[in-house]
Design a binder for these strands. Structure first.
Length: 483
RNA sequence: GCCCCCAUAGCUCAGUUGGAAGAGCACCUGACUCUUAAUCAGGGUGUCCCAGGUUCGAGCCCUGGUGGGGGUACCA
């Protein structure tokens, strides 16, 4: 071997392993313990002098001539292995010397403690399980390049413990949410991702084509209208943890493909959903983080309920000194414009309001903003005493919209009218008649809640970008950096 | 869509006024049977993102592009 080109060197080592009669890509390997357990039960295992076996990826090698230390990492942790020529034999050591960082190795041996007290395995036999042909990221700076982290998440997971923790927490948060809802008698359902008509939210859908049906389909932007059909069908407490898709701008808070929780409860209203949200988020935090006091972006946030509630009207009064109930949304627009807010096409988008409101609420999180003007909420029920206001809330935390809920509109005639008003302003949309038909059979009064799971995970893992909590975020031109 | 920033070795990064491409880790050679980012001696392995341009000379300046990040717009 006279080259220092790492790829060539590793190919050469692969060849030499084969020449030694070693299959470099092994098979089933029986482990007595995952690494974490070996460490936990170490004293018992070491005193019984029983042999143990473990498997994992070699992360560090410290050679000493005819002996060597290495760190073996599996899903649960790392343990040091000690390989000596006089223990594994000359051929065994020859094989070991062809092992690189990144290779998967199975080892059998006895647990022992080194002079310095490190729990280790004295290897008696080693098995090459997979030869790695490419060098891993740098051993203590890890992988920093964000593009590589996203494109090759596996490298991020191998090299960065923080990444492993974030995704571990993500999965446990989702599992805690399921547990919370199942315990309360909610049933988990699945509704179509491919929909003939994308409804239940605003936002542009992705379009696709079903050849067998000879029709265009859309990837759902929300599961809402199908979940409500199930309320019509008689189920009273349902939820779906769903991927939804929006063909819109990508940002640290927006992914074209994102995970959402939608929950529906018959005979309930949006106030019930506020309590449910508080309980659900706190239980997830308590289960996964062991506390309801979280830290995000340098700020300490206490999630203990009850959370602050402020009506949209009061928030507007506070911020812009306008009584929206008396003066209406038109004069709100005028006031905002004169306050320097730019309105595109003279329209006030819900999004602009969200931003204005989240600015207003900085430092007072988490907060429910409640009772929105009907203009922004075509699927929500009016307040009994205020027909221009709907029973709706949105949850904000750290300037981020985390949840959205309302008492569901279940009057089919009003729903058809409100759809028509909406459709009038967006020519590409049409009224979902099939959904209105369902309402005509009768949907019980109900409340619905949507929670952005990715964003919730961001809050609980102190991540500033949604891409950091999605294993494989969408990126452009995937072939561009391939070699 | 628009605006700003970034791209140098496998990885993390430095690179002065436009004048011979660098460091640490990784890797290779040698030594070493209790190391912890092992150590010691030696070795630089490169499409400076791509394509043009300016210049005697470009990693550096200019134009266009690609990819990434941030902001903004859109997101009932």
């Amino acid at each position: 071997m006279n080259t220092s080109d790492e790829l060539t060197v590793r190919q050469e080592k692969l060849k030499r392993l084969k020449e030694l009669g070693v299959e470099p890509y092994g098979r089933k390997f029986i482990r007595t313990h995952p690494v974490k357990q070996l460490i936990e039960k170490f004293d018992t295992l070491a005193s019984s002098e029983n042999e143990v076996s473990a498997a994992g990826r070699i992360m560090l090698i410290r050679g000493h001539g005819k002996a060597s230390f290495a760190d073996l990492q599996d899903e649960t942790g790392r343990i040091q292995i000690y390989v000596r020529q006089d223990t594994v034999g000359e051929k065994g050591y020859q094989i070991y010397k062809l092992v690189d960082m990144g290779d998967f190795l199975g080892v059998r041996g006895t647990p022992f403690e080194t002079k310095t007290g490190e729990k280790s395995i004295l290897v008696k036999e080693l098995t090459v399980l997979s030869k790695s042909l490419k060098p891993l990221p740098e051993k203590w700076h890890g992988l920093k390049d964000v593009e590589l982290k996203y494109r090759r998440r596996y490298l991020d997971l191998i090299a960065n413990e923080k990444a492993r923790e974030v995704f571990d927490k993500r999965m446990r948060i989702i599992s805690a949410i399921r547990g919370f809802l199942n315990k309360r008698g909610y049933r988990e359902v699945e509704t179509p991702i491919l929909q003939p008509q994308a409804g239940g939210a605003s936002g542009d859908p992705f379009k696709t084509r079903a050849d067998a049906l000879g029709m265009d389909l859309y990837l759902r932007i929300a599961p809402e209208l199908y979940l409500k059909r199930l309320l019509v069908g008689g189920w009273e407490k349902i939820y779906e943890i769903n991927k939804s898709f929006r063909n819109e701008g990508i940002s640290p808070r927006h992914s074209p493909e994102f995970t959402m929780l939608e929950v529906y409860a018959a005979y309930a209203d949006y106030e019930d959903m506020m309590r449910l949200t508080e309980e659900l988020v706190c239980e997830a935090a308590q289960t996964v983080l062991g506390t309801v006091r979280i830290s995000y972006d340098g700020k300490e946030i206490d999630l203990s309920p009850p959370w602050k509630r402020i009506t949209f009207g009061d928030a507007m009064k506070e911020k812009f000194d306008i009584d929206i109930e008396k003066e209406g949304i038109k004069s709100l627009k005028e006031k905002l414009e004169s306050a320097g807010v730019k309105l595109k096409d003279k329209k006030l988008s819900r999004n602009q309001l969200i931003r204005l409101l989240s600015e207003l609420l900085t430092g007072e999180l988490p907060t429910f903003i409640t009772d929105y003007p009907i203009e922004f909420s075509p699927l929500a029920k009016r307040k009994q005493d205020k027909p221009e206001i709907v029973e709706r809330f949105e949850l904000f935390m750290c300037g981020c919209e985390l949840a959205n809920a309302y008492s569901e509109l279940n009057d089919p005639q009003e729903q058809r009218e409100r759809f028509r008003e909406q459709v009038a302003s967006r020519e590409e949309r049409s009224v979902d008649e099939d959904f209105v038909t369902a309402l005509e059979y009768g949907m019980p009064p109900a409340a619905g809640l949507g929670i952005g799971i990715d964003r919730l995970v961001m809050m609980m893992t102190d991540c500033q970008s949604i891409r950091d909590v999605i294993l494989f975020p969408q990126l452009k031109g995937q072939a561009a950096r391939e070699k």
